[in-house]
Design a protein around this nucleic acid. Sequence first.
RNA 1: GGGGGAAUUCCCGAGUGGCCAAAGGGGACAGACUGUAAAUCUGCUGUCUACGACUUCGGUGGUUCGAAUCCACCUUCCCCCA
Length: 314
Amino acid sequence: MGEKIVCVVGPTASGKTGLGVALAKRYGGEVVSVDSMQIYRGMAIGTAAPTEEEQQGVPHHMIAIADPRESFSVARFAALATDCIEDILHRGRLPILVGGTGLYLDAIVRGTVFAPGTQDGAVRRDLQERLEREGIAPLLDELSAIDPAAAARLAPADEKRILRALEVYRETGTTITEHNAQTQKIPPRYDASYLGLAFREREEQRRRIALRVSQMAAEGLVDEVRALLASGVPESATALQAIGYKELLPALRGESTVEEGLADITLRSCQYAKRQLTWLRRNPAIHWIFWEKSPDFEEALRLSTEFLTARGVG
RNA sequence: GGGGGAAUUCCCGAGUGGCCAAAGGGGACAGACUGUAAAUCUGCUGUCUACGACUUCGGUGGUUCGAAUCCACCUUCCCCCA
């Protein structure tokens, strides 16, 4: 087992930022954001990145460090975040990972080794072209021949993963099934204590999200999106795929209204929260704290401390 | 006041006598997830004592072996003329 770290997880708008800061102050820790969209600059409002005031003097890492024109990846994120964590540990402080991007968080804690190959690599481009020319069927057949397990596991419509599976084989000579089996044998890099935040009632979660969206609008979300576009961020950029941004593009093009865009943001955020919960639910190590009505951070800090003490943290 | 059109399962919307518990989309719910992950993909969605039965297509009453589909009347909504 590696060194002890704390992870605060939960769906969007569940109060992770608040608890993360409270824990950091209580334990002398620093926050590492594990969020696929907060890494981009100029997206503070829509990604609900912690403001200076919310940070309360606690050092925060991995926020607004990338240009929104570039594309990040799990592997890149995990590498940078791991550097941050190591640095915090070397300084004798407690790393507190706060974030909603499940894949990223798991990759960091487990120390996942990703197979080579990137989105804009030659192999991927080649496969992409073949997909456009020939359709998915021949590619899936090819995968069946080299990695029947993966071919059986993946749905024919899951083009993204089929291409990736073929890519891994071409880049490494090893099937993705084999690669995954190998990486799963690697012991976790960190000894993580997980605290999960969630609303007891789904409806309460929805209300909370709707409230947050209207606050974002009041803080100038529309202008934020406009500014990104004005600075040359293409609509196809990963950053503009973020919820809160892509839904406002039609309104900015005059094809829809801001009101409709905001309603769409609320809807997509609720659906996203649901997916986050699906991801988190399969991690039995998470110590859940459920909000009955609205967040009660004092109580949450008490429960968290109790749990962390039992786990030997602090 | 006259004329025309429409009412379908949570929503939108197909369906015009049997192959309809009813296409398709959305939403909801559940799940997956190893270099785009706030992304991508899958399943499921009338009820039940479930390889069968029962109740649904605005309401009531008819026609028919059989109706969401045909007829009559009623209710509501929309459009046109006045």
